[in-house]
Amino acid sequence: MGATKNSLEKRGFFDKLNNSYYKPEIYAAIGLFGLSIILSFASEYFLTANNIINLFRQVSLNAIIACGMTFVILTGGIDLSVGSIVAVTGTFIAGFIKSGMPIPLSILIGLAIGIGFGVINGLIVAYTNIPAIIVTLASMSMARGTALLYSNGYPISGMPAIFKEFGRGYIGPIPNPVYIMIGIVIFSGIVLTKSKFGRHVYALGGNEETVRLSGINVKKIKMMVYVISGTLSALSGLILCSRLGSGQPLSGDGWELDAIAAVVVGGTSIAGGRGTIIGTLIGAFVIGVLNNGLNLLNVSPYLQLVVKGIVIIGAVFVRAGFAKEK
């Protein structure tokens, strides 16, 4: 009798899991947990306070960008320009500060330039028929080129201490960027789940024509998600520039891939319409823990790339496999 009851309960748990809206997120979280356990055995350094704090700081920038990417991917789009926007924002801010412009103004104008690329993405995607992957591929190239042109290809350094403090400092034991990440995650989560705009984002990814016929301005929403993505990338550019104490035109290279990886590992459908910010945060940590752990284990950076690729495919495969079962 006891055994029967037990097995029933067990089935109940998996049934619940399988029917849960958060199924992909739960699987990603289980993966993250498993990965962490393995690494804590493989490296004695992994679970130290120092490393954990370090890990959070490493993850924070990618997580911020990935939040913006989540908005874009939920509508069925993609934004390849995020890494280049990081570079162009940082480079301009550093350049302005170096030229003697007041720091707040430098930051504002620098951010505006980064966000400007998001606006361009949004305008073209919303008002033409050019696919997002092409539009953002082009702006990825333009933003990177602009950063290189402006800086002549060299890092711009020599930032005042007060500016560097923003990206390097701590409040209590926790680095500043981590607070910003937490703020962005909470804010994005609320916007997506609780606001009218967020609901429209999901619906747009599910069925654009239905959304349009429901009296919703589809173009405005498309436009907005790229502006959000551009804004969060520019914010990351600012943080990175401050932390490094220099504006580097080659920074943020390949970050679009890490952001997209975080989003899809976290359970967001690349076709749009389904996904959560919490999933993206978990996804960002999966990527981050992997990077961090493999570094600790002295795995060659080349091999790290291979492993990361395998994990991305594996994560999505597991989910697709389960989805098929239904």
Binding site: Y202, A203, G205, G206, N207, E209, T210, V211, L213, S269, G273, R274
Partner: peptide, 9 residues
């Protein structure tokens, strides 16, 4: 299907 519902919602 095409104009009335958002199937994934």
């Amino acid at each position: 299907k095409r104009q009335g519902v958002v199937l994934g919602m």
